[in-house]
Design a binder for these strands. Structure first.
Lengths: 236, 236
DNA sequence: TGTACATCAGTGAACGCGCGTTCACTGATGTAC
DNA sequence: TGTACATCAGTGAACGCGCGTTCACTGATGTAC
């Protein structure tokens, strides 16, 4: 069955994976309690059952540990968003896909408020995100843009769009460059607005700015998404 | 001219005001460098030229100092927003007033990115904002709502609004309660969306999520505000 | 106007704690011959 | 299959530093009679 007759102990490689995971999981729990700025290698080591210097075998510095947490969070959110989109059986039901996308973002954020704050809240002072974070970070906005392109192909165009200045067209050029085929700039503007509205809503909600104003966040978000769906011309 | 013949030294009361201000100003500068979580009473005292324990004459604890900074920031932003609105001579030009409001928020945020992050970024772990912060905090959303009411009175209604569920009407009841006269819920929804869009845009921009996507933030924000103006039915 | 007393800003030492990172080391696991 | 050697996880001490808060105190400013 196995290569070796009996194996009470694990291989070095297995242990390394396990320890790395244990450290990162503990770090993530601490993140929720003290925030990224106060994340302490020593406290994490203590909880994992290591001496503080041993952590350096796994992460060369505190900042690298933070980077690992950021990448993990972006990937989780990216997975959630892409899975929600893929779960819509009728690929041509763009309203359903948009709905799934928006709610996946908010659901993940509500389940993981501290990770959301790490990604979309205040930048961590003294920490500069390395390039490794770019690819995972871009998955969510990528999902928006994929949907925007699908809508454009399907001839579903946003409503009541205003003409866009040449300066704005130039400003949006990088985004157009990422797309397989360019989109009408007035349409792209509405998609970017939807992106801002969704993240604005989630941030305002999670960071406590809707307190005393809105009673039912679920219902309100659903209505907002509904209006966005209509604005984007996706309603059936 | 004065009550006293000559006064090389200041009164106790004057000194107290000055020192309080000196501490708060220094704290604010430190906030920008290390963030709210790492704000250090000792470092502030050192820079002001006091022994660390002396700060307790002015602020009973680190958290009270944080609260003072938050209140100061909310009030500055509130002042900026209200001043921008008031500066529009034609009070019936609601598009101009909305434009002034949105740009005042973003301008203040860009001038004071760390203060913006303190107010609208991640909550500070372990810090609970006391009630003193509520009144200043509410000024900005109050400005939105004032404008919404003016628009409603002027018969300027948002475009393409969707019907709003009874659950949503209930959810928005607190906001309606703050208003002098209730607003159509479908209109209110659009105003709240505008609020989310503006803060979403500013947060995404300031926290680095538009990097590599949008080249000209000024132009893009102007376009977004233009589209919102149209969506709210304020365009002339 | 002068004196006695109260107020309170600021001191300096102390308490009890925490942190990131480096370094020489031990000893178990893995590998090449 | 057995032995010599290399790898590397984890140790423990050390470096040099920081923090919030309390407390008994000094001495100048302000106040009441």
């Amino acid at each position: 069955m196995c290569d070796h007759v009996s194996m009470p102990s694990k291989s070095r490689a297995e242990n390394r994976v396990e320890q790395t995971r244990a450290i990162q999981q503990t770090a993530r729990r601490h993140l929720a309690e003290v925030g990224p700025a106060a994340l302490s290698l020593r406290a994490i080591a203590r909880e994992v059952g290591l001496v503080s210097s041993a952590v350096y075998r796994y992460f060369p510095s505190r900042d690298d540990l933070l980077t690992a947490l950021i990448v993990e969070a972006y990937d989780e959110l990216g997975d959630a968003v892409e899975a929600a989109d893929s779960a819509v059986a009728d690929r041509d039901d763009l309203a359903a896909r948009f709905h799934a996308l928006c709610h996946a973002i908010r659901d993940w954020a509500r389940t993981n408020p501290h990770e959301y704050a790490l990604l979309y809240g205040s930048p961590v002072p003294g920490y500069a995100a390395p390039d490794d974070t770019v690819t995972p970070a871009v998955r969510v906005s990528g999902a928006f843009m994929t949907l925007a392109q699908a809508a454009e192909r399907a001839g579903r165009t946003p409503i009541a769009t205003l003409p866009v200045s040449d300066a704005e067209k130039a400003a949006l050029a990088p985004i157009q460059g990422f797309l397989d085929a360019p989109i009408d700039d007035t349409h792209l503007l509405r998609w970017l607005m939807a992106w801002s509205t969704v993240f604005g809503h989630v941030s305002l909600e999670l960071f406590g700015h809707m307190h005393r104003g809105v009673l039912d966040y679920d219902e309100h978000f659903a209505q907002v998404v509904g209006q966005l769906t209509a604005d984007l011309g996706l309603s059936s």
